[in-house]
Each structure stands twice: as structure tokens, then as C-alpha cells.
Simulated scan of single mutants.
Amino acid sequence: MKDFKNRVVVITGAGSGMGRAYAVEFARLGARLALNDYDADGLAETVGLVEGAAPAVVSKVFDVGDKATMNSFADEVKAELGDAHIIINNAGVGGGGKPVWLNSDDDYERTMQINFFGVVYGTRAFLPQLLRNGEGAVVNVSSVFGLVGTPNTSDYCAAKFAVRGFTESLMVELQTSAISVHLVHPGGVRTNIAKGVEGGEEFTAKYLKTDPADVVRQVIRGIRSGKQRIVCGHNSFKLWLTSWSLPLEKRNRLLHGELKALMDPEHYDILKGPKA
């Protein structure tokens, strides 16, 4: 798909960061927008930014991990704008931010429900609309942490690896269709994804440097060209190269050394064994 004028583009997590940047860019390209976010104020702000540019805008505040509401959103989009042409499953949360033994079951369940099942629900709710149109694109946002495992992010990495597996399977299933499928692995993009996560401020300052609009433009170029894997953002190429070029043992040592400064020593005292 190369022309987005009057195409219906659905964007989850549109209240800030990359989701907002997708909305602004697709509005500039003349698309009709269906926007979601859990943050009502953030979503309203995004709607205010794009209403003058996009031919039509609908929005709905809900948690993408709620399957029934995602399905009803798809029905509302069809009723108000027509069948969707592009679904961008962008919404996500940062995870628990602790090592495996300190994360709670709730951390894992919440992160998987939003970051993985939100992608599954969004894809499955809107894919029939793309198929009815006979053209379209599914854009699922993983992460560079869907390429390598990193400390204090086991719930986040698990979800983003799952998005990768789900999306790569979908690519093969739709290989002979007119629907293109794109898997995005953003690196350090300047968003609020780490807000509220333990150590998030330090992580944000050190690693989240790329303007979201730069990533969005690369994704749009990928949709136009049919590129299936899109790796972009600060340090993304280095992590992608590391993910396949190094033996696992060497890769893990390298990642531990790179990220050790962000690992709270108190969280890792248990590794020293019982105290005398």
C-alpha cells in the first residue's frame, strides 16, 4: 500500500509517544483515523492535534487487553468510517522492572495481557475488515527486547518475543494475500514507556533518545515498500546484530556488562548465597 489518502488507519496507544506520532503523520497523509488509548486526557490531546488535518477521526478510551471492548471498537470503526485498511497495534506498558524472583504474578499477567494479547485482539478484530477491503497492512510493534533478553524485563521481553512469533506466523499465513504484515522492533525511542517502572528515569535518560516521528516515518516507508521487519531507533541496529551474530553465552555476558549499572544491587543480593 502506497497511498493513504482516505484510507482508514487504526492506531492503539495513540495518546502519547509513537502512537501520537503515527496519528499526526497519517493525518498529514490524508488518512481517516480510529484512535485508542487508556489515558483519556492523552487521547483527547492527540485528537485535538489531528482533527484539523485528518478527514475524519473517531476515538475510544479502553484497555487493549479487553477483548470484548476491542471487538466492539472494530464494529464502531466499521459503522463510522468503513472497513479498516491498516491496524497499528502500538499500545504497550513497560512491565514490572524487577528480576524474575521479585516480579509478581500480577506483573507478568498485566504485561502479557496488554503487550501481547492486546496485539492479538487488535489483529483479530480488524483483520476481517482488511480482508474485505482486499488490501491493507497489519503493523505489530515488538521491541529490540523482542530480539534479546535483558535483565529486569523478563515480563516485557516475554511479551515482545511473543508478538514477534505471532506476527512472523501471520506473515507466512498471509504470504499470498494482498495484506502486508510488518513487525517493528523499535530501539531507544523517546516515549514514556518506562514511566513508573523502577529505574525507569535512568533508563530513559541513557537509552531513549530517538524522536518518535523518525520511527514512524521509517515504518510508513516500510509499509509502502512491503518491508516485513523494521528495526529502527537508538541502538536498534547494534542489538539486532548482537541478536544473531554472537553465541548466546557471549551475548549474555555483553548485555550484563552493558546494563549492570541499572541493576539494583539489593535485588541481586540473593545471588551471593546465604549469609553466615
Rank of each mutant, 00 (worst) to 15 (best):
K98N: 08
S180P: 01
L102T: 10
V8T: 05
D211Q: 04
G42P: 12
V9I: 15
A40W: 00
A56P: 02
F73P: 00
F203V: 14
Q218E: 15
Y121C: 03
G257F: 10
E173T: 08
V9P: 06
A178E: 07
G146F: 03
D39V: 02
R224F: 00
I86K: 00
M1N: 01
A162V: 13
V119K: 08
H85S: 14
E25G: 01
A162P: 13
P99W: 09
Y156H: 04
Q218K: 15
G165R: 02
L241N: 04
T46G: 06
Y108K: 10
I230M: 14
I11M: 01
S169E: 04
V219A: 12
D75C: 00
D264R: 13
V58N: 08
K209V: 15
V77A: 02
G257T: 07
F73A: 01
V24M: 10
F203G: 05
V172Y: 11
V197Y: 05
T12C: 02
L259T: 07
W244S: 13
S243R: 08
R132L: 12
D155L: 04
A276P: 15
Q113M: 13
T210K: 14
Y38G: 10
G118K: 13
A31P: 10
V219R: 09
N140Q: 05
A56G: 00
H185I: 08
L81Y: 00
G30W: 06
Q175A: 11
P151K: 03
Q113W: 01
V9Y: 02
D214C: 03
L102Q: 11
Q218Y: 14
S177Y: 06
L35D: 04
S245I: 14
L246N: 02
R224N: 10
A213W: 02
V57D: 15
N152H: 11
G19F: 14
V24S: 06
H256C: 01
S59K: 07
K160C: 10
G97K: 14
G136R: 12
D3S: 12
L248H: 15
L183E: 05
R224E: 15
R20L: 05
T176N: 04
A125W: 00
I87C: 07
D107I: 11
S236I: 06
E266S: 09
R190Y: 13
A79L: 04
M18N: 03
T150E: 07
G146W: 05
I230T: 06
S243P: 11
L259P: 13
N36F: 04
V9T: 12
A261H: 14
T176Q: 09
T191L: 01
E173L: 04
A162K: 09
H185A: 09
D106P: 11
K206D: 15
A194Q: 09
L183N: 07
V57K: 11
D106Q: 15
N6V: 08
K195P: 07
R190M: 12
L147F: 05
I223Q: 11
A21Y: 09
Y268L: 06
G17V: 06
N133V: 05
E45G: 14
V216Q: 11
P128M: 06
P265C: 12
A40E: 14
A91V: 10
V10T: 00
Q129P: 13
